[in-house]
């Protein structure tokens, strides 16, 4: 998983998680996700998508595949074997370009 791009095909942009500080003095808060080709675009998209009504003073974005998460439920781990990725996005899986419609 250490190559740069984990996209399904050559026209799908990676997924980014967006965190917004709604006003000075508050923490950045997760508001949702979006698709962008690179970090600069992800920030601009976040501005356009998530702050259309002036909801933010500062934006963080991180590519979703870089987020690691705790396991919410030990019992469930029996059924949902070790996978510390926070979101179960299919884009986490690195597949060859030739593979279509999966």
């Amino acid at each position: 998983m250490d190559n740069q791009y984990t996209v399904q095909d050559k026209t799908s942009w990676p997924l980014w998680e967006v965190f917004i500080r709604s006003k000075q003095g508050l923490d950045h808060k997760h508001v949702g996700s979006l698709h962008a080709a690179d970090a600069a675009m992800a920030i601009e998209n976040a501005r356009d998508v998530y702050t259309r009504r002036m909801e933010g003073v500062s934006i963080w974005v991180v590519e979703s595949r870089h987020i690691h998460a705790s396991n919410p439920d030990e019992a469930a781990s029996l059924y949902d074997p070790a996978n510390d990725k926070v979101y179960r996005h299919p884009t986490f899986y690195d597949l060859p370009d030739e593979l279509k419609h999966m």
Partner: peptide, 14 residues
């Protein structure tokens, strides 16, 4: 927003 929330269930927007 909705595509994003569905994506957390393991399906891509594409």
């Amino acid at each position: 927003y909705l595509y994003s929330s569905a994506e957390t269930l393991g399906v891509s927007r594409e």
